[in-house]
Design a protein around this nucleic acid. Structure first.
Lengths: 336, 336
DNA sequence: CTCATTTACGTAAACGATTAAGTAAATCTT
DNA sequence: AAGATTTACTTAATCGTTTACGTAAATGAG
């Protein structure tokens, strides 16, 4: 590996001069700077990240906290595409991305310890138990943190606009003439609470009555639990004409039940999903859903995080809300 | 941040002694070593990864080469769950995982340059254009490399047993009494070639005739192209009774065509997938497919890579083949 | 009891970069 | 032209480890 020393020898200058020339500082003569840069390129010089990190206390490395509770989250397209977008934006800005876990090697490190050990410049918390002491410790530390879909006091958070998205969905459904709308929601999280609240609020605003029995609990990304909820809804004395599923994937469970009962979508029953994953747009009928803008969420998370790293004074912690996009699809029938 | 110096002062010994005590070396007295370790724990000492890396030239960091050609690969469950398993195993062994790209910051670095810059101890090539000069340069470098589903000369490769998996599928299909079997395969890659060869070979061994028109080309993970292929197959004068799809997800495209034509699965037409993703097991009918053992593939990749890093002398480059598992499902009908 | 060996620790250089402070030469000022 | 300033570089310290080598004391051998 060619170092600055090698270059300095070849150019007959000191190492300091090489350093300054390569980092484009002012107190170097134009011609020498140019020459040094040329030689550096010729010799295939690459900065030594470790040395730089040691001296500057900056690694140009971002940590990603991504705990797979059920060993399946990375498979959830929402998260994986979000992560992809985050990674792309980080790299654009000269940052690498490293996963942060809490069991590195045989010893168990807390998340914060892991971050300090690797000296990441900042961390994005994508998917984790936001109530775990470990996570809270990290959030309260000196390390810049951005969270996604969860708000910590005084910290920047990127939020998918769940409230508006649910409102858009419900509004669209009612515009198609439905008044009997059921909502199967996911397990209790802050996101779920927002969605439920928005569902009730929107129905209220639109003058739609929501029987208690129309709101069912299930699990995200779990077709079986949505299937069960679907069965219950359909066995009600006065069943809904439209069922909103917790997410596109879970809908696949509901779909099985509907097929079984020989209910055609959307002729006999209308349905909606959430997320707007690839799958939702390639099935027949195309699912009415809301696409969460994972591209923007990931990009925004990276940019905010980097901003708070590079401009600690001026960067302000705030909540950034990213709108989703209604995908009308063909799974909600126009009721005449 | 508390450093070895802080500990050395508190313990009244030299920094060298602290270093040796913490790394468990022999030339330190039992009691002092114990005491130093106790104090280090009390003070919350964490090693400085950068300093260590600078001195030892080892980072305990593994690179992952994961190029998303179509900006959708991370979404492909096969890859994401493989990556998940790789990450878990790496962390178990004290290694972190960093993504390697070729456009870090404004400047374009080759993969190799990026690896050298970050000084990763080794790289796993999960998903990339294996013929790109960039990738070849990396493979031929001094950096330990493990590839997945592609063989480079003299390098360790972890391979899903595509040959056996296709054989299992075809065998199963024929055991159900089918003789008119069509195969829609993905775009041309070494994996595809193996699958096609195994398809022909198995059919030959089983005495099954394969008309040229029964083998169609499509794209992986692309329902539309599989839909088109399905249409062509069904419009043949003598259509197949069973269609093998390139992967589970692509099958969703074929399914739409079959629904449209009011062909019931498996009563009117039998189908199989490939991969064994979550989706394949929650749809109705449950898809007959082969689960690729991503858990083992990821784990094996991590272990082989780490072995070749830690034991460069004894580690041998070889091809590790990981068997898949036939999931019979209900999408292939028993022909009487 | 002496000399060799082992044990337990300290010294100091090194890894490759950054940067404050110093300095000599060149340029400017009046 | 003498002093003040600017320009273009060098010196040297530093970041936190690791490790070869040195050394004094303790233990061993004969």
């Amino acid at each position: 590996m060619v170092s600055m020393k090698d270059i300095s020898i070849k150019c007959g200058v000191s190492v300091a001069t090489v350093s300054k020339a390569l980092s484009g500082q002012s107190d170097i003569g134009k011609k020498t700077a140019l020459h040094i840069r040329k030689v550096a390129k010729e010799m295939g010089y690459l900065p030594n990240a470790a040395a730089r990190a040691l001296k500057t206390n900056r690694t140009n490395n971002l940590g990603v906290l991504f705990v797979d509770n059920m060993r399946s989250d990375l498979m959830h397209e929402y998260f994986s595409s979000l992560l992809n977008s985050f990674k792309a934006e980080a790299e654009q800005n000269g940052y690498d991305v490293t996963f942060i876990s809490n069991n590195i090697g045989q010893s168990t490190m807390s998340f914060l310890e892991h971050c300090r050990y690797r000296a990441v410049d900042g961390v994005v918390i994508v998917c984790a138990d936001f109530n775990a002491p470990d996570v809270i410790e990290l959030v309260q530390s000196e390390i810049p943190v951005v969270t996604i879909d969860h708000v910590f006091n005084e910290k920047t958070a990127i939020l998918s606009n769940n409230v508006q998205s649910i409102r858009d969905l419900v509004t669209y459904i009612t515009e198609q003439g439905h008044t009997k709308i059921a909502f199967i929601h996911g397990e209790d999280t802050s996101v779920t609470q927002k969605r439920i609240a928005s569902f009730y609020r929107t129905c209220q605003d639109l003058g739609i009555n929501v029987p208690e029995a129309y709101v069912k609990s299930a699990l995200y990304h779990n077709p079986a639990s949505s299937a069960a909820a679907t069965r219950e809804l359909l066995s009600l004395p006065d069943p809904p004409t439209c069922i909103m599923y917790p997410d596109d994937f879970s809908f696949m469970g509901g779909r099985n039940v509907l097929d079984e009962m020989e209910l055609k979508i959307p002729e006999d029953i209308s349905v909606t999903g959430f997320d707007g994953i690839y799958l939702s747009q390639v099935i027949q009928p195309v699912l009415t859903t809301v696409r969460q803008d994972t591209l923007s969420i990931g990009r925004e998370a990276a940019n905010r995080l980097i901003d708070s790293i590079e401009n600690p004074k001026t960067a302000v912690a705030e909540q950034v809300v990213i709108d989703g996009k209604l995908l009308p699809g063909q799974s909600v029938r126009q009721v005449t």
